[in-house]
Computed example of a mutant assay.
Amino acid sequence: MEQLEERLKSETPIYPIFLGAANYIAKTQFIDRIKIEEQKSIDFIGIKTIININHIKDLKIDFKKQRLVKEKMPIDFLKGRNPKKSQSFIYDENCNEVFIITEKEYYNYNGKNILFI
């Protein structure tokens, strides 16, 4: 965790950080290191981050508010930063929470649920 924190502070990631397609390269800014606890749920929870579709047991969609996008993104790389393995993810294009049931652990920070990919 210390190496991750240092890489975020110095803006030197091991892999490029991006939001979807390759032309959406992201820039990071270290703000703080916090403690959060792992949580589990058997009911629908709202997630504010991208969601690996393999972690979705059930999905609730509000067709009036949400515009869900499904993208395939690399999750592992070969030498030279060539994609090795990809998976599909969803997110709401309007930045709304996506309500899912998941068996994967998630984290809550400041009232926002975070599901790591």
Rank of each mutant, 00 (worst) to 15 (best):
A22K: 15
M1H: 10
Y106I: 00
I90R: 05
P16A: 00
H55Y: 15
K85L: 14
N108Y: 02
A26Y: 05
T102M: 08
D58C: 05
S88K: 10
N108F: 00
S41T: 07
T12K: 15
G80L: 02
K104W: 11
I56V: 12
I101V: 08
I42A: 07
E97S: 10
I61A: 06
F77E: 05
E93I: 01
F99V: 08
E2C: 04
K40I: 07
P83N: 00
I51E: 01
E11K: 15
Q3N: 13
S88V: 04
S41N: 05
S10F: 14
S10Q: 15
K104T: 09
F77M: 05
K48L: 08
F30H: 15
G46M: 01
N96E: 05
L68H: 09
I36E: 03
Y24Q: 13
T28L: 11
V69P: 06
I25Y: 07
I61G: 03
I50G: 09
I47Y: 08
D43P: 01
G80F: 03
N94A: 03
I56M: 11
F44V: 00
K112S: 09
F77C: 00
L19V: 02
T102A: 07
N96F: 10
S10D: 13
K57L: 08
P83W: 01
I61Y: 09
K40A: 03
L19Y: 04
I31A: 10
Y107A: 09
F18M: 15
F99C: 02
R33M: 13
A22N: 14
K72V: 00
Q3C: 04
A21C: 08
I50P: 02
I47Q: 01
L4M: 13
I25T: 11
G111E: 00
F30R: 02
D43G: 04
I17L: 15
D58H: 03
I45R: 08
K85A: 06
R7T: 01
I47A: 09
V69Q: 04
K65D: 06
D92T: 02
M73P: 02
K70E: 12
K65N: 13
E5H: 10
K112I: 09
E71Y: 10
D62S: 06
K40G: 01
H55Q: 14
K79E: 07
Y106R: 02
I31S: 13
R7E: 02
G46L: 07
I117C: 10
D58E: 15
A22G: 12
K64R: 12
I53F: 10
K57G: 03
